[in-house]
């Protein structure tokens, strides 16, 4: 009898915890639906509709948006011709984002290592300095970069003053400017996860490496890098993905001439008034990112299993 009542009480108890859990999860679920699933659904639906003349959409099913990504319809006979201009923008975006990721890694790794090897009480100060740029709006920071990079900017004036160059280098409104801007913007996203994994690194492993005849580079390659791998991957993802969709940096530093995906999509919703195509481009971008992440997860999973 006692057992039966106990079970009854337990069932009641369990039901109550389940209810509480659902209640506690509700706000998070609502937010996820509201800011992620819903907009994505709208984007998905819009990408299969026809553009309205003054923006917006006409509720008629069409795959034109996706076709338009690779082909151009001849205005006269309506035949499809291959058109690589959007593909080029995609490729350039991927190239720039990739370059910025590598650049941020090269700059971020020594920075994170430097902070991780500082005495514990100094590290917070350094981390604070790394995150300091976030205190200012990205738009303003990018304008500041513009002032630094332009022909009469700090870089050119310094180089000319020292006598390294005679004419100013035209950096602004080139891929180089976008590249520099991307690195500058996303560097903290590289440094922070790298720091998190390097901070956990047992420096006795580094000593063990030196002890076993590895020089600095080999210690870096065979011991520090593998141990910091989760941080490297997280940092690369955190730089590459937002870098790929960057909008402000290419808009300002590329001067509107050097478009990236983000700008192209923005134009579709703005002056081009082609919402379905903008939606389709956004979804293609997302699909690419997801596919890249899946390929990576596959490879990483295999690597881990091979080791285990």
């Amino acid at each position: 009898m006692t057992a039966a009542t106990l079970t009854q009480a337990q069932i009641e108890e369990r039901r109550r915890t389940r209810r509480t859990r659902r209640a506690l999860l509700a706000p998070a679920l609502i937010i996820i639906v509201a800011i992620s699933v819903l907009p994505l659904g709208i984007t998905f639906v819009y990408s299969f509709l026809k553009p309205g003349t003054y923006g917006g959409v006409i509720w008629e099913f069409s795959t034109d948006a996706y076709v338009q990504f690779l082909f151009e319809r001849d205005i006269f006979d309506g035949t499809l011709q291959f058109n690589d201009s959007y593909l080029t923008i995609f490729m350039r975006s991927i190239g720039l984002a990739f370059g910025a990721t590598v650049g941020a890694l090269i700059l971020g790794f020594p920075t994170a290592y430097f902070i991780a090897t500082k005495p514990r009480e100094q590290r917070n100060l350094w981390l604070f300095l790394i995150t300091l740029p976030f205190w200012t709006n990205l738009l303003i920071r990018t304008y500041a970069m513009l002032l630094i990079l332009r022909d009469e900017g700090m870089i050119n004036l310094t180089l000319m003053g020292v006598g390294v160059i005679e004419k100013p280098l035209s950096i602004l409104y080139t891929d180089t400017a976008v590249f520099i801007g991307l690195i500058y913007t996303y560097l903290p996203f590289m440094v922070l996860p790298l720091y998190a994994s390097l901070e956990k690194l047992d420096f006795r492993l580094v000593e063990a490496g030196y002890d076993l005849y590895a020089n600095r580079w080999r210690v870096l390659r065979h011991i520090i890098t593998p141990v910091a791998k989760p941080g490297i991957i997280a940092g690369c993802i955190l730089v590459f993905i937002p870098g790929l969709g960057a909008y402000i940096t290419p808009a300002l530093l590329g001067g509107g001439k050097k478009l990236m995906i983000g700008n192209m999509i923005a134009i579709q919703f703005g002056s081009s008034r082609n919402w379905p195509f903008g939606s389709a481009a956004a979804l293609i971008l997302m699909a690419l990112v997801v596919i890249a992440l899946l390929i990576y997860a596959r490879a990483a999973g295999k690597g881990a299993r091979a080791h285990g």
Partner: peptide
């Protein structure tokens, strides 16, 4: 790394990877 001397560390310091 240039000394023909090796160490057995107190916590072993084996490479985890």
């Amino acid at each position: 790394h240039l000394r023909p001397v090796n160490t057995v560390f107190q916590n072993y310091a084996l490479f985890p990877h």
